[in-house]
């Protein structure tokens, strides 16, 4: 590990200015991924700009009935927030399904969104990886890729995004707040992430120098429960092989609101737009759910060793949809 400078700005604006003034700088918050990447040599910053103590650590009510989650709210605190548990259960469940208690106590909302893939080729400097070193090739495509993407991958990269939280936020129509010296903007979480294409080195549409200041959750619709389910190799403390977040509202037996996102399948949380389109206005029946989920997963292009993810994701989605759908009223 090379030496680096360390700065602890007192405001978001100072942090953005410090980034502009120090080429090669990185923002540090909980550090659960960044410090590991420093040790691995994947990240070699000139300077760390510590944003962990900026006043971005609260969850606030918005006037439209939504919630604003500050970028440095710790994952454990967000999962335990009664408003999140009551109004956005998929988010609390997704957070609690991720990592370990120690990591959730350190990891922040903004850092969780920006964590890097756990593809072992990305983390190993001795292996080729287009995400870490553009043009070096992809070791995973013909190598060990059981955990890798089945949707939206490219010849250059088959990595998955590891976050559980981001999958729930994508299904919940949350937005990311971004700040830079040039101004502020917001992006839906579902559109914040890129597909790898020819530039897998870029995970998201964040611009150099932009800082995540928070996440906005829209007001939860009455009668629209949500849930998250994750499949992993062991009962706890493992990344998703596949996961799904679902928001579902049914009126008079018909789906009138639906948000579905898959995790573990792609370079980004995979919003299942084909499924959602097919379900809106359709009867909320197991058969309708099955047909709609199949429409999405028909786009899957599994690799040699990860075709199991397609039926796994289907079963997870059908389980959650059927669980959230209220039993039909007796005739």
């Amino acid at each position: 590990m090379n030496g680096f400078g360390y700065l602890r700005p007192d405001s978001v604006h100072e942090a953005a200015e410090a980034y502009a003034a120090h080429p090669g700088a990185r923002f540090l918050a909980g550090g659960t991924n960044l410090v590991d990447l420093l040790k691995l040599g994947v990240e070699r910053p000139s300077t760390l700009i510590d944003i962990g103590r900026l006043p971005l650590d609260s969850v606030q009510e918005l006037s439209d009935g939504g919630l604003r989650v500050g970028a440095t709210v710790r994952n454990s605190d967000l999962a335990a927030d009664p408003r999140v548990r009551d109004r956005y259960p998929a988010l609390s469940q997704a957070l609690l399904a991720g990592a370990s208690a120690q990591l959730r106590n350190a990891a922040t909302t903004g850092g969780n969104l920006l964590q890097r893939t756990r593809c072992p080729y990305f983390q190993d400097l001795d292996k080729p990886c287009n995400k870490r070193e553009p043009g070096s090739g992809c070791g995973a495509r013909d190598g060990v890729h059981r955990d890798h993407a089945v949707l939206g991958h490219s010849p250059q990269c088959i990595a998955t995004h590891p976050s559980d939280m981001a999958v729930a936020l994508a299904a919940l129509d949350a937005q990311v707040e971004l700040y830079s010296t040039a101004g502020t903007r917001r992006l839906p979480v579902a559109d914040f992430y890129r597909l790898p294409g020819e530039h897998p080195e870029r995970d998201t549409w964040i611009r150099p120098g932009e800082l995540i200041t928070g996440v906005r959750l829209p007001a939860a619709t009455a009668g629209a429960p949500s849930a998250y389910r994750k499949a992993r190799d062991r009962a706890s403390y493992a990344f998703a092989l596949a996961s799904v977040a679902v928001v579902l509202r049914i009126q008079d037996g018909v789906v009138d609101q639906v948000g579905i996102a898959f995790g573990g399948l792609a370079h980004r949380p995979w919003r299942a737009r084909h499924t959602e389109l097919a379900l809106l206005g359709a009867p909320a029946t197991p058969a309708a759910f099955e047909g709609a989920v199949a429409l999405e997963l028909a786009h899957a292009e599994p690799l040699r060793d990860n075709a199991y993810k397609v039926p796994l994701a289907r079963n997870l989605a059908l389980d959650v949809l059927n669980r959230l759908a209220p039993a039909p009223a007796p005739a």
């Binding site: 360390y6 602890r8 540090l28 550090g31 659960t32 410090v35 590991d36 760390l48 510590d50 962990g52 370990s100 208690a101 120690q102 990591l103 106590n105 350190a106």
Partner: peptide, 22 residues
């Protein structure tokens, strides 16, 4: 692995991932 777990301001954290300067 959690072998390095300590309490920081009362919260359990992995001390191997905490930069002392912060």
């Amino acid at each position: 692995c959690g072998a390095c777990t300590v309490l920081v301001d009362g919260r359990r954290l992995n001390s191997c991932l905490l930069l002392a300067v912060a």
